[in-house]
Design a protein around this nucleic acid. Sequence first.
DNA 1: TAGATTGTTAATCGATTAACAATC
DNA 2: TAGATTGTTAATCGATTAACAATC
Lengths: 212, 212
Amino acid sequence: MEKKVSLAVIKRLPRYYRFLGDLLDNGITRISSKDLSLKMNLTASQIRQDLNNFGCFGQQGYGYNVELLLNEIKEILGLNKTYNLVILGAGKIGQALLNYNKFEKRGFNFIGIFDIDKNIIGSELKGIKVQDINNLKAFSKENHIDIAVIAVPVANATDLYENVVSYGIKGIWNFSNTELKAKDGVIIENVHLTDSLMTLAYRLNSGEFVEE
Amino acid sequence: MEKKVSLAVIKRLPRYYRFLGDLLDNGITRISSKDLSLKMNLTASQIRQDLNNFGCFGQQGYGYNVELLLNEIKEILGLNKTYNLVILGAGKIGQALLNYNKFEKRGFNFIGIFDIDKNIIGSELKGIKVQDINNLKAFSKENHIDIAVIAVPVANATDLYENVVSYGIKGIWNFSNTELKAKDGVIIENVHLTDSLMTLAYRLNSGEFVEE
DNA sequence: TAGATTGTTAATCGATTAACAATC
DNA sequence: TAGATTGTTAATCGATTAACAATC
């Protein structure tokens, strides 16, 4: 296994990916760490350090080939594979995620959506029939699920999480505003919207100036 | 102005707030940094350091009074005030946010929702009429807006952002997958869902074990 | 009082930045 | 070749952890 890369670096990768994609779209084929640093508001040093966690993608005197680097990062992020996702909770958040087309473009495919509410179960959303959450166990045996999206109310989130893990699902994208207990081999990515909004509130009051 | 508190600390505050709220709900009235550290998977040192950025809330030999500390953090985060928000983009994400009741409980009130689509404009969502985005300027003169939620497609986000800033709105909660240029006095909080999902994909592939 | 636990200073660790030899 | 820019080592900076006197 490769040496451990810090989470700070990993969290910057999607941003590199976005900027490089924009460059390519604008017909720019090469870029130096210096020029990229100016666009991204980072230091050139940091960019080179970040990239060198994964390999030597540049060339002295030349810089980086944009397309090549973009593909390397795509590979690093695991975006050459596809992922099967299920959405747990067919409320507004679940539906919003299901309808957002960008995810499928990146290889994240929604193969199922589940709910507990009899009034929603059976209805069709974006070509997928909403299933009873009790079907998830059986469904997970017939289909390989990479990621479960937890989009249910806080009260149900923890129990659901335990079930999901017991079905062997390794990736959790958690939208519920609660802590899910870390378990070996299970990766949890939290999207705590309330926390995000509170942080914004704090910063609005603290009279902070230019930021990120 | 107080000394600058690092963003790392600020981002931990909502989590403290959540845990302390849970403690209080469970009837726990006092807690030591040591016990809290065990629950939150932090070090006791870090908790004391974090809190002491803002004041001395504990007592030697006793620990912290849960209710008192909760209120202090509430105050620090600016949750004793209320905030007026407008949602820009009445699509699924905009609607999901509008319908999520937790925000209003914390003092974040949605006072308007705007869209560009004539088919949606005029319809009513959660008791609020969807307005034409062209009304936003006039609306912002009649109402104090603390935070604009950008929930429009990438293509429109940058122009909209420039407009919003020109209307004097200082807080931006950005759900579009693009970079908004930092400006003095404007606070941007990004929720980059695609980035979050990519980070999850990376971690799923990297064979990482227990985390966060 | 004795024990517990804070607030705070000092030590450590890790991440960012600077510098520069290697080399395209 | 000369200039540019990398990859990488060393220096700096900041954040986390440890230690402990103060004190409830």
